[in-house]
Design a protein around this nucleic acid. Structure first.
Length: 226
DNA sequence: CTTTCGATATTCT
DNA sequence: GAATATCGAAAGC
């Protein structure tokens, strides 16, 4: 049943993004547990690719929730987003880091001998390589129904919680949960590499699992307000 | 630890 | 021409 995932992704990205932490994206011989995401929210978000309307590159960002949006970053890297709703708002969550939980040999073949295991899918460009994501081929496919190369499955236990409470309420609870020492399980902060006001405290839409070694190190953009 | 730099597709000025 | 949802290596603290 992917009803829980569908109802979650129907929410705006800043709401659904924290609930994608702990989810697993599977395909092309690997499975990666997502540990770090950033939300981008269409025309109201100056940091979003969709902020200035549809282009050939970003058109799949305007697609239905659960669409994969893959784009070329800095002319070099392939980065992967999961589109969220409402449909037509060009919103989505950038998968920025994860733990390779299956197909480690395949991921290492793609990444080379250098990176440590925790770094195989650390950072959006590296995650794209580890996944074996292909521009053009994968852009616009669904991660919900197995019709595309990748399938997204929710973190254990989340499906049941989303079946018994509205997504926004479940996410509020997730953000409030702490470990035995009182430390939040999910951390949030400004988005990495985003300039201007969109990269500052007004858009604290980067979410990660606190203390997880597969989360990329924060790099502040030159022009970010902070 | 920090800063700097090169690689370079897409978009905007 | 300039900026960008990046990465890894190199050099200087």
């Amino acid at each position: 049943m992917t009803d829980a995932l569908r109802s979650l992704l129907a929410e705006p990205a800043p709401i659904s993004a924290p609930a994608l932490l702990g989810a697993t994206i599977t395909g092309r011989g690997v499975a990666i547990r997502v540990t770090e995401v950033e939300a981008y929210h269409g025309p109201t978000d100056p940091g979003s690719h969709g902020h200035r309307g549809m282009t050939e590159r970003n058109r799949h960002l305007f697609g239905p929730p659960g669409t994969l949006y893959a784009y070329r970053s800095y002319g070099i890297h392939t980065c992967v987003n999961v589109v969220s709703g409402p449909e037509g708002t060009s919103a989505g969550s950038l998968l920025r880091g994860g733990e390779v939980v299956a197909g480690r040999d395949t991921a290492r073949e793609r990444r080379g001998p250098r990176p440590a295991d925790v770094a195989l899918a650390r950072g959006p460009g590296n995650l794209g390589v580890a996944l074996g994501a292909v521009l053009g081929t994968d852009d616009g496919t669904s991660v919900l129904d197995g019709s595309g190369p990748f399938v997204l499955t929710l973190a254990p236990g989340l499906e049941a919680r989303l079946a018994s409470a509205p997504p926004a309420a479940v996410v509020d609870d997730l953000l409030a949960e702490t470990d035995a020492a009182g430390v939040p399980r999910i951390s949030r902060g400004p988005r990495t590499g985003v300039g201007g006001i969109a990269g500052g405290a007004s858009f604290p839409w980067r979410f990660w699992l606190t203390g997880d070694p597969t989360v990329s190190t924060y790099r502040r953009h030159k022009g970010a307000f902070d």
